[in-house]
Structures are given as structure tokens and as C-alpha cells.
Design a protein around this nucleic acid. Sequence first.
RNA 1: GGUUCCGUAGCUCAGCUGGAUAGAGCAACUGACUUCUAAUCAGUAGGUCGCAGGUUCGAAUCCUGCCGGAAUCACCA
Length: 615
Amino acid sequence: MDILQIIDEKVPAALKSLYDIDVPKEKLIVNTTKKEFEGDYTVVTFPFARDARKKPDQIAEELGAYLIENTKDFTAYNVIKGFLNLTVSDDYWKHFLSRIKEDTSYGESPKTGEKAMVEFSSPNTNKPLHLGHVRNILLGWSTSRILEAAGHDVVKVQIINDRGIAICKSMLAWKKFGEGKTPESEGVKSDHFVGHWYVVFDAQLRGEYAEWQKSSAAQQLLESKAVKPENVEAFFKKYKNDYFNEYSELGAEAKDMLLKWEAGDKEVRDLWRMMNGWVYKGFDVTYENLGVHFDKLYYESNTYLLGKDIIEEGIENGIFYKKDDNSVWIDLEDAKLDHKLVLRSDGTSVYMTQDIGTAKLRYQDFGMEKMIYVVADEQNHHFKVLFEILKRLGESFADGCYHLNYGMVNLPSGRMKSREGTVVDADDLMKEVIQEAAKNGEAIGTLDGVSEEEKQKIFGQIGLAALKYFIIKVNPKKSMIFDPSESVDMQGQTGPYIQNAGVRIKSILRKLDEVDFDDLNGYESIHEAEKELLQMLHAFPSIIKEAAQDYDPSHLANYCYALAKGYHKFYNSGLSVIRAENQEAKAFRKALSTSTLNVLTSGMGLLGIEIPERM
RNA sequence: GGUUCCGUAGCUCAGCUGGAUAGAGCAACUGACUUCUAAUCAGUAGGUCGCAGGUUCGAAUCCUGCCGGAAUCACCA
């Protein structure tokens, strides 16, 4: 039985027997004992003092004595200022180690049968993926894996924003200026090729806008708005969107294209299919390189009309109301969310309408109990409203909806801006970290005998580990500063550091001769470095549960680092595995090393990080 | 202005439902490789946990108010 369960049961029983008091669960605080004190687990006795009408020190003393007396799993205790430090028997630890040493699924919970859907990535199809997507994808992917490990059935989906004005801009620019060029003809990765035309469009538009600013129409506008000369520049900067909609020729053409698309115009649809095809082909490569995939893709072009019928129905049920101008709203004031428009006065839908419809469609497709949206925190409000509406519509999964919001990724120089060309491209980024890993690897020279192909694979694993870990170790809620030079760090609290612990173990296991695992039961006196590892290994299942419950992979990332650090420490502590003092020690340390490797492999695997054979 | 999130070492971050003297990494400095992979380890130095109150045996953690930063509050997507 799990030692923490034993404490959970025995301590209340002891208090009942000693003082005839009943302690509620939340008053029982158990921590791992701090390094500077003797013991493994600590019970805090302050919360019992009032009911027991005794001093904490005395309670701790009596409780400790009782536990030693009545359980075989504790061998010693000490009391310091109301803290009862318990020492767990070596036998318990040896049994624990025997149990997990060959269990590669250690840490996973049994299947709950509960179905969870995770939506992540969900890019627009007008340009390649960038650093912001990378954070999103890594969060979504690892959260999916963690939920699986916690026993859920997980469906990984994305909604691809494949229609709208943005893609029309790329399409229009290619049509006008592309001269029939293709990704193949230019030798460019196909999503980057499409992104190029988006940039071209913006450049053309800016040129057109600059010209227009000198026109009489522009001057008239300035006069009518009474813009002062010193404010002209700022005014035009802000006015750009209005210009696009009201004056721009290119804007008119793009909007015309969008209308034609909606009308199903064959030429526009063909162009759209071709350019989106290019984008998907490029995305596939990026996803593959990142090591992620999806179970089901939803396309906005198929879902953007969904939800209208739900709104119509909701009007009849009094959930929505219609204004005089025919627009449809929902009153969410009692949920402190104001009123929200769900259908425009011309009857067309907005984002919210579509999301309501898509949610329902997904429920029809999969019948999930949980629905996790991995979307940046700029949309917090949107999701609050969405979930509230789903609740009022009586959707069964509404309570299981969760917005996994994460903060923006900024550069040391500030926000990424596409206009200023500071957007960090996902493909470039991966290439850079892998190059850095290769540079370091060649310098260290540990792979000198390895084939070139194998080397490239390993450098890829190391580089990606550095990048992924750098991003995933940060609490999602926090906006993060992404310093490219730090993201390629391979020392200290990094992915490669953790990989290195695993690689060390693999190297030892390769060289280790046959050992009878049963011998570990005869091992005497577990050392401190070994004990620390055991305690950390012991905590693994609860770390996964916690990460799943909080939808926070960073817990797991930090845990993996602590475990790797523990192993490096053990490794350097003079306790040799191969040259262990006897067979018992060898068996014990082999089991300890194997277990650590298994947990590192599982834990890092849940983060989407592999541990290479050597490095 | 309303709402939400954030503020911990020079920098990047941990710190679980309140628990012992607030921890890591980077950068700086000192040491350890004919050793089981030194992408490692041991050590030195670095702090008014934004500020002020409150709750209590105990607060970085919970509550309130300020200060500073971010996001959002569209008949945009």
C-alpha cells in the first residue's frame, strides 16, 4: 500500500485513539521532509492542537510513538517545533522499487472512460507557423498526452481558419503579381511561399495608402475630422483599416474575392484550394518536425455557417432576443458579462455563432465530456461568453469546457510584429536549435564513432528538446520572454540536461552485466542520494494527476528536471552501479536507474521530448 | 473606466490545498575528468517575495486597498 495512503489512514486513527478527536481531511498536512531534517515525510501537528487541547510538540511526540508502534512501515521519528518527521522503512522502499522497476507504464492512471477533446494550433492559412503557434502546439500536445496518462480518452483536433479576408489577400497578391510562380518553381517551402504573397499584399497596400494620403479625398477627410498637422501621421496609422474598407482598390478587390468565394465562384475556389493546399503541405512538414499530429481537422470553410439554427431555436426558447434592427443578442448581465451579439442585423453570423455551432458539431461527432480550447489569453473574454452561452443552451459538455489560456510570447526587444519582420518563424527556429545542438555535439565529440545519419537524428532530438523544454517549463498563464540565445542553451535547467541523465543511465545499462533483481531486497542502508530519487519516483503518479487537473504541463517539466538533477547527483555521489560494492547494491542501483530512466522517458514523452540512446 | 491575469536574486523561472532558515538555472568566481558520457558534480556570492493593512499558532501563498505591467471590453476574425 502507498505510504501516503497509510499516513492518511493511520494518522486520523491514531488521533482518534489518543485524543478521541475526529480530524477532517483538510487538516491533515503531509509534506516530504526538508533536506536539512532527518526523515522522509512530515506531518504538521498544529492543526490538531486546538481539538486535542495539547501542545503541537506533545501531539507530535505521542503521534510518532503511536505510529511506530502500530505500523511496520515507519522505523523512526523525530519532532521539531510541532513537525513530526517520519522515517519510512527501507523495506517499504525496496518493495516500491521492485514494483516499479520494470513497469514502463508506471505513473499512468487506469482508463476512466471519460472523453476529452483538445483543440490546439488552429492556424490561419495565409502564412507559416510562428513562435506563438509553437507555444500553443506544445501546450496542446503535452496537455493531450497528460490527459491520456491520467486515464482520459483524448481526441486532438484543430479548427483551421481556411477562409476569410486574410487568405484572400494572399490569393489576390499571387494572382496579380505572381506570374504563375509556384513553390516548386521557386524552390520555397510551400507555406512560406503563400506567406510571401501575404507580405506582398501588405506592401502593395501600404504603397497605395501612401499615395492616397496625398490625394484630395484624403485631405478632405483630414479637414472633416479636424486633424491637426502634428497628428496626421498618427491618424493615418490608426485609419488604415478604415481605408482598407472604404477607399482602397486592393481592399475592394480582396473583399470582392471573398464575396465570390462565398458565392462559390469556381475560379476563386480553385485558386483557394490550390493555395491552401500549398499551405497544408508546408504545415504537415512543420507538424511532423515538431512531432505532433491530430485526430481530426475541422475547417472553418465547413463550419462558418453553423450555429444559426441553434440561435433561431434559442430565440423561441427565450435564451436569445431580437432587437428592432433584427440583430440577435443574449443578455448575460447576471453572469457579469454584458450583452453579446450572436447574429448581425443582416442575419449573418459572427465568430461566437460559429463557435457555438462547432462545439455542438463536435459533441455530435465524439460525445466528449471535456472540451479544452488551447487559445492565447487575448481571447479570455470570448471563451467566458461562449461557455456561458453553451451552459444556457443546456449542453451537457458545457461544464467540462476549459479555456487553456496562455500568455503571449514576447522577444527581449518586445512584441513580435509581422510588419517589422520580428516574427520568429517556427521552421527557422527549429533549424537553429538543431544546428546549435550539432555544433555543441561535434565540439564535445561524444558521437565521433556514430554514423552521420544517426548523428543527425540525435542532434534533432537534442535541439528540439532544448526548444520544447524552454517553452513548456514556463507556467502557461505567464506571458514569456523568448530569448533565442537562451532557447538554445543546453546546460542547466534545459531539455538536454534531462536527456543527459537518461543517456547516462542507458550507457550504464548497456555495460552492466546480468543482475538478479531479487537481490535488491538484501541491500542494506539506502543512501541519501538514493532515498531522494526514490521519493521523487514515488511522487510521479501524483505529478501527472496534478498536471492533468490543472491543465499545466509545466508541473511535469519541472518535475522531470528535479528527477534528472537527482540522478546526476546520485551518479556523482560515488555510488557506482557497475562497480557496486556487492550484488545486492548492484541490483538495487540497477533497479533505481532503470526506474529513473522509465520515468524520465514517460515524463518527457508526455512533453513531446525524446531521450536519445547516446549524446 | 469595468473585468481577468501577472509582479519572487542582475536575467529566466520554481515554490502544491497556508507550514520549518524562500529555491533552481543563467551570468560571475573557486574546485573535481587515465573514473558508469564533464551537455555533469561540489562550492562562493546574490532577496524588503511590488507596497500597505487584515485573517492566525504560522502568509510568497488567503482577503482588502493602493502601485506597476499585460490582455480584453466590436454588427473584426
